[in-house]
């Protein structure tokens, strides 16, 4: 499907979405509250985005940005969904029931960035030890023993 058709569908589902076409794929900026209902529509609707191939977070120092790379195994089109989160209290709805792979990926983002995924079935630390403090992939994380500054 063409980019225009994708845009049109997303605007009908989420009128506040903002688009950016500077990158390789169509970037869609949404508010965190809009993510869960939009995710359902992206997977079940005509666009058939059934494959979430990358889920990650970026710390922009002023805010955190969730980045979801979606693709469709039927139409082979891809989009990037972004949602900016408050750095002091980052929270967004989980999509682990829509794309099952995000259950592990969200746990990873939870421990490394401190993003809280609401209604996640099993939000615990996956890689770090349970008593680990801090969020290592945030830019202000300091570890004087293990981190070597070049």
């Amino acid at each position: 499907m063409s980019i225009e058709e994708i845009k049109e569908y997303i605007l009908s589902a989420e009128p506040t979405a903002a688009f950016d076409e500077t990158g390789e794929w169509l970037n869609i900026l949404i508010s965190p509250e809009a993510w869960k209902p939009l995710a359902e529509k992206l997977k079940q609707g005509v666009l058939l985005f059934d494959y979430l191939f990358c889920l990650t977070c970026i710390d922009w120092k002023t805010h955190l940005a969730m980045v979801y790379h979606l693709s469709s195994t039927t139409y082979r089109h891809s989009i990037v969904i972004r949602a900016n989160l408050d750095r002091d209290r980052p929270r967004i709805e989980t999509v682990s029931d829509t794309w099952r792979t995000s259950e592990f990926h969200e746990r990873e983002v939870f421990e490394l960035f401190g993003v809280e995924f609401l209604h996640h079935p099993d939000l615990r630390k996956l890689i770090l030890t349970d008593d680990f403090e801090g969020f290592p992939l945030r830019k202000d994380f300091e570890d004087p023993i293990n981190m070597i500054k070049l």
């Binding site: 990650t56 792979t101 592990f104 990926h105 992939l137």
Partner: peptide, 19 residues
């Protein structure tokens, strides 16, 4: 790089093990 993410195949494949 400001941020690098590696999407590793094993991580996603392992998540299907329980299922």
């Amino acid at each position: 790089p400001y941020r690098i993410k590696f999407r590793s195949p094993g991580f996603s494949n392992l998540s299907a093990l329980h299922h």
